[in-house]
Design a protein around this nucleic acid. Sequence first.
DNA 1: ATGTATGCAAACCATTTGCAATGAC
DNA 2: GTCATTGCAAATGGTTTGCATACAT
Lengths: 157, 157
Amino acid sequence: MENIYTDLKILLTDYLTTQKLRKTDERYAILEQICLFPSHFDICMLYDRLKETNFRVSKATLYNTLDILIAADLIVKHQFTAKSIQYELKAMAETHSHLICSMCGAVREIRDSSLKRDIKNMKISRFTPMFHTLYIYGMCSKCKYKLQKNNKGNTKQ
Amino acid sequence: MENIYTDLKILLTDYLTTQKLRKTDERYAILEQICLFPSHFDICMLYDRLKETNFRVSKATLYNTLDILIAADLIVKHQFTAKSIQYELKAMAETHSHLICSMCGAVREIRDSSLKRDIKNMKISRFTPMFHTLYIYGMCSKCKYKLQKNNKGNTKQ
DNA sequence: ATGTATGCAAACCATTTGCAATGAC
DNA sequence: GTCATTGCAAATGGTTTGCATACAT
């Protein structure tokens, strides 16, 4: 599982080299921590995680580094909700779509290989697709259950 | 074209009535202006538009009202980019997906009825889908052209 | 030695909140 | 008359920026 970092480390080094950017400890430490997240994460989660493991990195550096990782095509940015941006390893994001509960904000992933294929095969003029996100908004079973329970009280609507 | 407002006005009235919310002039004026936008809009655009037409409405009321319109299922929220949220009439959003240029941020719409159907037919356990968004990120032809032109200078990479 | 990267703190800005005044019911 | 709604201004909080210091090259 951790060996995804082994691969991405090489890609990062390649990118930093061709772009003439510096190979700092912070950049590798950040990528390493990102590889340990099971899926999405936000800046705060990453910040806290780094603080309690290797070494603390400033927020400014985090934002800067995440932009580099996006440019290097290693991670992607999600905006499921207005509050706080979420990130994810691109390699992981490619394998699933997202179910987002409009009530509680919970995000779940689902595999949908056939749909992915259809999207990839779409013919689009004057546009070169690189990456896509499919967000399906709705209600998770927990919230639906809560809602039904609440509605039992007012049967006359 | 404007008669979409005629329809939505009725739906809004229904919603406000069942939810025991007040039918204020502001709420109808806001919905009316929204119906005049050809597609996406943000709070600022709506605020300016209202100021130069009917009457000025405060930002606080705008945010409040948009939340009601979302709850009433008349509009949807988009987060194409981190900066500023965009909104769109739900009836319009259902007809297309979005192409977003990662370089210049331009958003274009494309119709994709077969894909929409596939997504609707997906079987998802423990989740009730209400609405979905497909964002395809990539490069628009203008930016691609610019990039190619720039790269001609440095052939040695 | 040079100039990029980092950390800190201040700035920014869209959105939210608190509260007094207004107006729908 | 009551209480939801509005407008205003202040607060919030995630993200960005400016600048002095640190360090990769």
